[in-house]
Design a protein around this nucleic acid. Structure first.
Length: 303
DNA sequence: AGCGGTCAAGTTGAT
DNA sequence: ATCAACTTGACCGCT
C-alpha cells in the first residue's frame, strides 16, 4: 500500500521545530551562543521524536526532516559540530534514539535540502557550501536512519547539459554517506523529468518524480510514462511528490501549493504502487488525513 | 500575548 | 528593479 509522507511540520498538532537567526546568534558571546544552539538542537530532537510518534499513530509512513533541524550548523561564521556544544553527545544520542524508534515504527525519514544547495553552479563557492550542507545533512541522516536526501538540479545558467556536467563533477566530491542517499527531483522552472532521467540513470542515482512540477513544466511525456521510468531508477521504495495548485489549474499561477490535495490530481497510475508519496500541502497532517480517507473510500467504491 | 521588521545562502520568470 | 516561488514562515525586540 502507498506510504504517505508529511513534510517538516504540523498544521494543528502542537509540535514545533525551532530555528535561530544568524544576526541574533552572532550578537551572543560564544558561551551563550553554544548554550542557545544546544538548547535548540535538543528541543528539535525532542520534536522529531514527537513527530515520529504522531506519524505512527496516524497512519503517516514517512516524515521529511527540516534542513534547519540543527540551526545554523553550516553557517560560514556560526557553524558548529553538535558534539562540541554543551551536552552535545547527549543530543546526538537523542537523535540516534529517534532513528531506533523510526525503525521500530516502520517509518521512513527523508531530507530535502533547500534551494541554496546547488551542485550545478558555475560558482565554486556555491558548490563548496552546498557540499558542506549535504555532508551535514548526511551525518544527521545517519543518526536517524534517513535514506533519502533529495535535491533539485538547480539553475540552467543558459545551458542545461553544461550545468548537469558540473553537477556530475561535483558528485565526485561527495562522501559515500551523501552519495548513497542522494536523489534528484524535477522542478517547475528548469529541469523536467526528461532532463533528469538520463542524468540519474548515468549517475546511478534515483529520480524523485514530482508530478505537480511536471504539470507546471511539461516535457511532452505523460505521467504514466514518467512514472514507469522513475520507478526503475530506485533500488528501494520509490519516492514521489504530490501537490495541488492553490488557485486551480486555470488560475494565474499553478505553482503555489494548495492547503489540500484534490483527488483529481492524484495520478491514477500511482494506485496500488509500493511507493512513498510526500504530500506537499499547506494543511500538512490534515491534508494527509483527508487524502488517506479519500483514497480508501475510492478503493472501496471501486470494487 | 500580539505586532511588525527581519532573516545565511541561489535562480528564475512575472510584474 | 522588485518580488514571489521554491521543501517549512519563524524569530526577536518591542509594546
Amino acid at each position: 500500500m502507498i506510504r504517505l509522507g508529511l513534510c517538516c511540520k504540523f498544521e494543528k498538532e502542537p509540535i514545533k521545530f525551532l530555528t535561530a537567526t544568524a544576526l541574533h546568534a552572532g550578537k551572543l558571546t560564544p558561551a551563550e551562543r553554544a548554550r542557545k544552539l544546544a538548547a535548540l538542537c535538543a528541543a528539535n530532537a525532542a520534536a522529531l521524536r514527537a513527530s515520529l510518534e504522531y506519524c505512527a499513530a496516524h497512519g503517516i509512513g514517512c516524515f521529511r526532516v527540516n534542513s534547519q533541524v540543527l540551526p545554523l550548523a553550516t553557517h560560514p561564521e556560526l557553524g558548529y559540530d553538535l558534539k562540541d556544544l554543551p551536552g552535545g553527545e547527549a543530543i546526538v544520542k537523542a537523535f540516534k534514539d529517534c532513528g531506533a524508534q523510526a525503525r521500530r515504527l516502520g517509518l521512513r525519514l527523508t531530507f530535502h535540502p533547500d534551494q541554496f544547495i546547488l551542485l550545478s553552479s558555475p560558482n565554486p563557492a556555491v558548490t563548496a557550501a552546498s557540499v558542506k550542507e549535504l555532508e551535514y545533512q548526511a551525518q544527521v541522516a545517519g543518526w536517524i536512519g534517513a535514506d533519502v536526501i533529495n535535491i533539485h538540479a538547480g539553475g540552467a545558467y543558459g545551458d542545461k547539459p553544461a550545468a548537469l556536467g558540473r553537477a556530475a563533477a561535483a558528485l565526485k566530491k561527495l562522501s559515500g554517506a551523501v552519495r548513497s542517499r542522494l536523489a534528484f527531483e524535477n522542478d517547475d522552472r528548469s529541469y523536467t523529468p526528461s532532463d533528469l532521467l538520463p542524468f540519474c540513470a548515468g549517475q546511478k542515482l534515483p529520480f524523485v518524480y514530482d508530478v505537480h512540477h511536471h504539470r507546471c513544466l511539461p516535457d511532452g511525456r505523460s505521467a504514466e510514462e514518467t512514472t514507469a521510468l522513475a520507478l526503475k531508477t530506485w533500488d528501494r521504495e520509490p519516492l514521489f511528490h504530490l501537490s495541488s495548485p492553490k488557485f486551480g489549474w486555470r488560475g494565474p499561477d499553478p505553482r503555489p501549493h494548495h492547503d489540500y490535495i484534490d483527488l483529481k490530481d492524484f495520478p491514477s497510475c500511482w494506485r496500488g504502487l509500493a511507493i512513498t508519496i510526500e504530500v506537499e500541502a499547506k494543511a500538512k497532517e490534515l491534508a494527509i488525513k483527508r487524502l488517506r480517507r479519500q483514497l480508501l473510500a475510492r478503493r472501496a467504491g471501486r470494487k
